[in-house]
Design a protein around this nucleic acid. Sequence first.
DNA 1: ATATAAAGTCCCGCATATCGGAACGAGATA
DNA 2: TATCTCGTTCCGATATGCGGGACTTTATAT
Lengths: 254, 254
Amino acid sequence: MANTNGGGVQTTRKTFAIVHALKELDGARIDELSEHLDMASSTVHRHVATLDDLGYLDREGDVYHLGLRFLTLGGHAQTRQPVFDLAKEKVDQIARETDERSQFIVEDGGRRMYVYTEAGTNAVKTDATIGKRGPIHSSAAGKAILAASSDEFVADVLDRHGVSQVTPHTIDDRETLLAEIEEIRERGYAFNEQESTLGLRAVASTITGVNGEVYGAISIAGPAHRFKGELFRSEYPDLLLAATNEIELKLEYS
Amino acid sequence: MANTNGGGVQTTRKTFAIVHALKELDGARIDELSEHLDMASSTVHRHVATLDDLGYLDREGDVYHLGLRFLTLGGHAQTRQPVFDLAKEKVDQIARETDERSQFIVEDGGRRMYVYTEAGTNAVKTDATIGKRGPIHSSAAGKAILAASSDEFVADVLDRHGVSQVTPHTIDDRETLLAEIEEIRERGYAFNEQESTLGLRAVASTITGVNGEVYGAISIAGPAHRFKGELFRSEYPDLLLAATNEIELKLEYS
DNA sequence: ATATAAAGTCCCGCATATCGGAACGAGATA
DNA sequence: TATCTCGTTCCGATATGCGGGACTTTATAT
């Protein structure tokens, strides 16, 4: 059981600490990394040189960045998702038809992850790009995924990650969240009322397999001033339910 | 100088050997990896457990796969590309307008890499997905990138990777390739005449900075039976030149 | 139900690869 | 030219990765 202690291969942990730092700092020099990670500069140098030699870094003078080679690995994981092709198609279609932002989101390690996103012509600018992660309880797709999962799973995720407050509207109380999840189960889709970003609302519904496997969720997001009334409360939910149901049917007969 | 010898951090090399194997084998058990990589199963187990603990693997029973966490790193590298947003927009537009496949391709480590792709409604099915890599000399975008680069760069890339034959139509002779590159420099765009996939043709043109930096290339690809005559020889080239020129202008004034 | 096999997991002693301090070199600045 | 900064290389000490083997678990067949 390799539970989150310091066990395992420590050199590998060190390498990935450097990789994470390069991502957080959006590129860094050897010395910055050395200071940031509290490691000897000779150690950092050796690790960075190895990663560079393996082709995983982009070097610009003395500054190193994560290289596109990681996209090769990430792209493999992305297209491996069982419903990726179907979901991508629907996300593209929804973005084009609504002119808003649409996204395919999956649970990964108890958090939400954007596996595919597309922006329509009026779409709001967000930082929801491919591969981004965030807390699962503060988004429409995340809540929809929780609602489609078992109580044990939900409890486990909440135990591990809690219900942090992201905006003043985030549901940061476990009981309230569980009640909302129950509502979503009855309703069939989830809302996000500025719970992850102020001024942003969203709707989401899940893609579920015949045996109850939760493959992810598709959502539509946009500015609060456009997302209201019939459009927000019934048109978009219907659009999403139609899309996810169609995917589920295609899945069943293939 | 961390040139491609066995130096550096060997443990890290071992970890990435496992990562590569998991990608190539499209998932594997401990024992398969152990045999495939000729490492003790206890060693593989320790490495895999560490990667899993770091959140980089998806475990399905005894089978491990590359996890979506790699997409977080890859997505970071992708959006960091200087022209990514502009290129994505154009690729989407071209795919929608032509109903064919369009892609944004970059040089990485002497090979071509698909940084963003979109398929129009009639697009051919190919394995050109995000993050995929391939030889640079056997595609329209790759040849366009070479044509926009310096002679020294071209020589270096060809020295390192050669000109392998991918299909019967691939240019697998260095002199012929150099002559074609010269033609592309004069013409301003490149063709692919079934040189990477039989039955597939493509056109590409590059995005270049004011100081000659090559940011990548955008291409249109489709079946040979549709890609011919005026459409292939002048309409698509014009469309691509318009797109890449517009990106170059936006770059200049920002 | 029991036996057998096959694979995953864990343990531990040994060899060695990693670590970090220090020296060296390169490049920039005053 | 002197000085400073930071990347790079070297090398001895030791922490740590390695692999053989034991143990555990799961699946299959008798």
